[in-house]
Nucleic acid binder design. Structure first.
Lengths: 252, 252
DNA sequence: GTGACTTTGTGCATGGCTTCACAAGTGCGT
DNA sequence: ACGCACTTGTGAAGCCATGCACAAAGTCAC
């Protein structure tokens, strides 16, 4: 397993770094393309689903089908993590799931805080899929002090001022913004000020943050609009072909 | 502009179709890259925000900043819609918003049904951002017949069997799946069977649908995992440099 | 042990998206 | 009327990602 690059030159601390206990993946992990990283969670989901069904081994073809990608893409993505498959056989489900989890940093539980206890915030707080693996909602916050103390699930709403303590004492690293758009920037500023550098933004607006802070946006309106585009293009084309059918005859 | 393939062979109803009165945009619209389409909603949001602040004209630089993209990208994206800017001046906010709305097919209101009235489904049903523009939630459905009739917002929960009628009578075109993962595929099958060809999937699973059905997936776990990757890479790098420094000394 | 078969990992070609850089076009001051 | 300052729209170049095709590497049957 760990018998790969056991060079005893003593000068390998550059690229490979400390491979003794950090394993060589860290070096490899540096260069995973964003597009691949974005697909890894999907593979992990598929693998978990397979494991639940008692399947212990998959080929790239099968796993790719389960994750909704091409097998070539899957193999190339996995090759960035290392060489965890067996030629002629496939991948061991548990092993691969573990490796992807490690690559994604899910071996530890990340503390998450949700800000904004409106409809969406409460739904997110109650969402079990959140706590699946790797994440732990440790705090629910709201700007409105009249909500403070209200129990939501098994947590009580806390005030925004608690952010600093959460980052300091509980190693809070990820903030979820579930507020209306007009207070999202303010919340983001407070998160960043407290030291949070990863933000998941559900508010339909662009956040202005320092370059070392990562923001990912989830917006149902955007998604619906993209669907609308294709839906409209489809019906537009139907009209078009109907018309051009006639025109085609005329043209002849 | 539209003088490209004016072959008079009479067989041009394939690609160019009828360009006479459907306006050249339709022809142009066919070729908007997916990446551009995915950004158009963001531009529209930024424009709406600007309009609310009473701003009537923007440069590509300003709008790009508001939407969080580069100005070159913005201009190239907009160029796919047509030429709606004025050189030396910029874009008229209202006009550009209208053109993007048209391109996205938001001049009409798309009927939407939400399936699954758990925490998430109820939150989505209540989410005002849904109804902003272009979309109209016309039905809430749940597989569980004991929920049928329950009022959620200003709609009552209906049964899955109503799907056919919704597609037939109300031109339902877009379905939102807010069920747990294990019933999502079943719901998708029923949506497709009823004639829905655009699906927004909030369940953490891959849906198997015919190729002419478009599915977009929204998954908070996935997004969190991507954030975790970068968060871990960040701290991992810090550890690594610290360690390799020490090991360097030891190795020597 | 050998050969047939299966599947991974990857170099290479291809296509699409992004960035650059600039000509073309517009308004404004003089 | 003319030049200057500014901004759009777009060819061209570069870059990243995807798909292809196959050598490498393993299993299995005998």
């Amino acid at each position: 397993m760990a018998s790969q690059v056991r060079t005893l030159t003593g000068y390998h601390h550059f690229k490979t770094g400390a491979e003794g206990h950090v394993s060589a993946d860290v070096a490899a992990r540096r260069g995973i393309p964003d597009a691949s990283v974005a697909r890894l969670p999907g593979y992990l989901q598929a693998l978990t689903s397979l494991a639940e069904r008692g399947i212990s081994s998959v080929s790239s073809e099968e796993l790719a089908a389960a994750a909704g990608v091409s097998s070539a893409k899957l193999r190339k993505d996995l090759s960035h993590l290392g060489s965890y498959g067996v030629r002629g056989v496939g991948y061991e489900v548990d092993r691969l799931a573990y490796e992807i989890s490690t690559a994604l940093g899910l071996t530890q539980d990340w503390p998450v805080a949700i800000v904004g206890m409106g409809n969406l915030g409460r739904a997110l707080a109650a969402y079990s899929g959140f706590a699946t693996r790797g994440f732990n909602v440790i705090a629910l916050l709201d700007r409105d002090d009249s909500l403070v103390g209200t129990p939501v699930g098994d947590l009580a709403v806390r005030r925004m001022g608690d952010l600093d303590a959460l980052v300091r004492d509980d190693r809070l690293a990820i903030g979820v913004i579930a507020t209306p758009a007009d207070s999202a920037q303010d919340v983001a500023d407070r998160l960043v000020g407290a030291g949070v550098r990863s933000i998941l933004n559900f508010a339909p607006c662009v956040l202005d943050v320092p370059s070392d802070v990562m923001v990912r946006k989830v917006d149902m309106s955007t998604e619906l609009q993209i669907l609308a585009f294709h839906e409209q293009r489809r019906t537009g084309e139907l009209d078009l072909t109907a018309q051009s059918g006639v025109e085609g005859v005329v043209a002849l």
